[in-house]
């Protein structure tokens, strides 16, 4: 057991899965000698060499396309895209090939691969380096979309993603990389993909969040308890797709009120799908419309006004109060 930040926790998962299975390889820009733009792959090149920790040219489409080929042959590639904003260069390989190979070949081929990408704001970064774009991947059948909320879930979910027989898009919040340390067990730990976690129990309102927004939801829940005497249930989604509809519905059946928080912009985002899912699974329990607290529907913002754009606890508290007063 050691206290690790998310970068170190992810590094541990990569190290242990590579030790465990020599079919696991890492490919990406600067993942080898340099150790990765956020140092998640640090030292792995030294330990496993250049044929398992592969420094690629700046060629996102080729990275993903090559990884698809590796996976078809039976390797388990882990691709790193330096920022999620760069992934549109390879989006067609993800959408047209990685996601579809199982279906296109009627189950004869599949792509066991992970695409790791740093996403999201909160570190005063710039355009192409701050966006949250999980909705694009969550929308695609054949992909799984995982977003951990801290070091321990990051480590366990990455291990599960590497072992998952289908392609997993694995988003890592830049704001969480160095935000906090958590106890992470030395022995290998996995977590089921597709399963949400009740982070905090409550009876009055359900807050649904994931990734860096879990912190915001927790903070809002604390304010609502202290100032309003309201007991908020916080769900840490962990997997955006496939969505854990049962956990969400069971919670809202109990609380009757729900607010979804995400860093992606609002229109056609995960909040809309989650709200629809609540309508289907807990309609008769609902006391108020489901509210969404999200980034705004603008292409990007400069770092100077980042925190106007990204949901904060105050916005979540305000939406929760509206929901409670409905």
């Amino acid at each position: 057991m050691g206290k690790l930040n998310m970068v170190k926790a992810l590094n541990l998962a990569l190290l242990q899965e590579m030790e465990r299975d020599d079919g696991v390889v890492i490919i990406g820009e600067d993942v080898g000698v340099d150790g990765g733009v956020f140092r998640v792959t640090e030292d792995l090149h030294r330990q496993f060499g250049g044929t398992r920790v592969i420094d690629s040219p700046l060629a996102e489409a080729a990275i993903i396309g090559t990884a698809v080929g590796m996976a078809l042959y039976g390797l388990k590639p882990i691709c790193e895209i330096q920022f999620s904003g760069f992934a549109f260069q390879c989006f067609h390989q993800i959408e047209n090939h990685a996601a579809r190979y199982r279906a296109r070949s009627q189950g004869r081929f599949h792509c066991q691969m992970v695409l790791r990408m740093p996403y999201g704001g909160g570190v005063r970064a710039l355009e192409h380096h701050t966006e949250s774009e999980e909705q694009f991947y969550a929308h695609i059948p054949g992909l799984k979309m995982v977003i951990p909320s801290g070091p321990r879930t990051a480590r366990a979910l990455l291990a599960s993603a590497i072992r998952d027989p289908d392609p997993v898009i694995f988003f890592e919040s830049k704001a969480l990389y160095h935000a906090a340390k958590e106890e992470v067990p030395d022995e290998i730990e996995t977590m089921p993909i597709g399963r949400a976690r009740i982070d905090r129990e409550g009876r009055d309102l359900t807050l649904i969040a994931y990734g860096a927004m879990l912190r915001v939801a927790r903070e809002a829940a604390e304010v609502l308890r202290e100032e309003d005497g309201v007991e908020v249930e916080v769900i840490d989604l962990l997997t955006v797709s496939p969505l854990d509809r049962e956990t969400i519905s069971a919670s809202v059946q109990k609380t009757g009120r729900a607010v979804v928080v995400h860093e992606a912009s609002r229109n056609f985002g995960p909040g809309a799908e989650i709200a629809a899912s609540i309508m289907e699974g807990a309609f008769l329990s609902l006391e108020a419309p489901v509210r969404r607290v999200t980034a705004y529907d603008v292409p990007f913002v400069g770092f100077a006004r980042e925190w106007v754009h990204i949901p904060d606890a105050a916005r979540v508290v305000s939406a929760a109060r509206d929901t409670l007063a409905y």
Binding site: L126, E127, H128, F300, V301, G302, F303, A304, R305
Partner: peptide, 16 residues
């Protein structure tokens, strides 16, 4: 600096 009188009204920053 991300300021209003910047070439991109402070919304772009260094790369923009």
């Amino acid at each position: 600096f991300g300021r209003r009188d910047g070439l991109s009204k402070g919304k772009g920053g260094s790369m923009h």
